[in-house]
């Protein structure tokens, strides 16, 4: 009896709490004229959305050399790609001898595991924050190179992406610099 009444008190209190601050977050938009509600939860920095290919701004070409490492490592075998000789390399603008000709990811099958990103040696693939790609037809999100690059470029712009290897180099360089200064102060 008393615990029942206590329970009713709990719901009452949480209602008062709820009147002040419901935990619901609206999606996709937030509120209307009469009530403004919290924004949809933003994705976290490390959020793994659909994979996409990155774009090398310096050379204006994809990072991907179509080396097939990620394709072999993908647990669901949802990717495929074709390689070609890089015309920009022949012109001497790019250091990549080979480059991706076509690339397809069947996002229906992708399980967003992130293994492809981990194994790529060329910083060519990223897990974007894109997660709203539902469609009515079954094969609508088998995406090919242009869409992958577009998604990747969007992600790069949004997050100010720096290629991980470059970032590691910068960090290492910073460490080395710090070491040298430390050494300098010692001597």
């Amino acid at each position: 009896m008393f615990n029942c009444l206590k329970g009713m008190l709990v719901t009452l209190v949480s209602t008062m709490h709820g009147l002040r601050q419901p935990v619901t977050r609206q999606y996709p938009d937030s509120g209307n004229l009469l009530g403004h509600h919290p924004e949809p939860t933003p994705v976290k920095d490390r959020f793994m959305g659909f994979p996409a290919l990155t774009w090398d701004e310096d050379v204006q070409e994809p990072f991907c050399t179509s080396c097939m490492v990620c394709i072999r490592q993908c647990p669901t075998q949802c990717m495929s790609s074709v390689m070609k000789d890089n015309p920009l390399h022949e012109e001497g603008k790019s250091s990549r001898r080979k480059i991706v000709d076509s690339f397809e990811i069947n996002l229906n099958r992708c399980i967003l595991c992130g293994i492809c990103v981990e194994v790529c040696n060329f910083d060519a693939i990223v897990m974007t924050h894109e997660h709203e790609m539902s469609d009515f037809s079954r094969n609508a999100i088998r995406v090919d190179l242009p869409i992958l690059l577009e998604n990747g470029l969007k992600f790069q712009k949004e997050t100010g992406w720096i290629p991980p290897t470059q970032r590691a180099k910068v960090q290492k360089g910073g460490d080395a610099a710090a070491e040298t200064t430390a050494a300098g102060t010692e001597t």
Partner: peptide, 16 residues
Amino acid sequence: LARLQLRLGPTRTGPM
């Protein structure tokens, strides 16, 4: 019920 459960309840159709 929504308020009892810290939810908003229906919000889409018309104001509130």
